[in-house]
Write a protein that binds this DNA or RNA. Structure first.
Lengths: 158, 158
DNA sequence: CCTATTGTCTACCAAGTGAGTTGAGTTACA
DNA sequence: TGTAACTCAACTCACTTGGTAGACAATAGG
């Protein structure tokens, strides 16, 4: 799962992308529009500023803006930045590769093969969509839109 | 990321799949072969037994075995069981769907559209591979096998 | 029936992470 | 000079993770 912080960061960046070229956007506006706790958003935007993703300006007409044109920022970039990796296990990460602890030798690990496929598919989606792209929100699942097949297992509760 | 516990569960299940039809496999054998802390593995296998995934027997020739033929268990099943969902955000989960907290209305959320694509691709991989399938481990990344493109952003450290 | 072996179960724990908040400081415009 | 912004380090506090401890229950063999 993506952390709340990562999700906030994505929404904040989308907001800035929508206002790109219109000068500084104030934190309070972003927080209100995107439903993000104000104080938490300051830490997130400061972090993004430190990473060079957004510019910032203090003072009366201060605010934040994208430091990079939205066409040059992919969702993959954003998630990697906040989360470190797109992969489900450290050993399947291409940019932040790391040995899994208590694993078998990488050459013996079947799970890795699988997780590498998943990470590559994920990357091909997320690296292909840019902050400038229009994305049409999907409607919530309809109640009758049952999942394609009942989960076969999962006999326990929860 | 998958939790350590989920990864251990997958490896344990692979081990049992390899020995399917050969009677009970003892915990100590699995732990040793798969490099999993013995005591921790007991909690994991007991949990899997409660879910009906594995059978168990105590006493001198006791042990664990798959309660379901490995051809009927997909990796998707396994991960859903241990982790609840394949999705990166709760609102993109099909079986364990839940509203994200502090989000916009689902009908206004662009992130969800994206994350739904990712979750569907992930599911199509993980639900298509079964515990009975032979998976060839991949060799570790070669040092010269640089990632396809340098991460464009990620200017900070780490 | 005794005992060694093997799984079960509840409880506990230390460290880390996640999600924020506090509050003092700085910059810039007017 | 005042005040509306952003900055930054520190802190809180509940929850999760990754285990461990130890008493208990069943089973096979002698």
């Amino acid at each position: 799962m993506l952390s709340q912080k990562t999700r906030y960061a994505i929404r904040a960046m989308q907001h800035l992308a929508d206002r790109h070229g219109q000068g500084p956007v104030q934190l309070a506006e972003i927080a209100a529009a995107q439903n993000i706790p104000v104080k938490f958003l300051t830490t997130i935007l400061s972090e993004l500023a430190r990473y060079g993703m957004v510019g910032s300006k203090r003072g009366k007409v201060g605010g934040y803006w994208l430091a990079i044109p939205p066409v040059d920022i992919t969702y993959g970039d954003l998630i990697r930045l906040m989360r470190g990796s797109l992969a489900l296990v450290p050993c399947a990460s291409r940019f932040a590769h790391e040995k899994c602890s208590h694993c078998l030798a990488e050459g013996d690990c079947r799970t890795r093969t699988l997780m590498l496929q998943v990470r590559d598919q994920t990357a091909s989606i997320l690296d292909g969509i840019r902050l400038s792209d229009r994305i049409d929100p999907l409607p919530p699942f309809a109640d009758d839109e049952a999942p394609p097949a009942a989960p076969k297992l999962h006999l326990g509760d929860e």
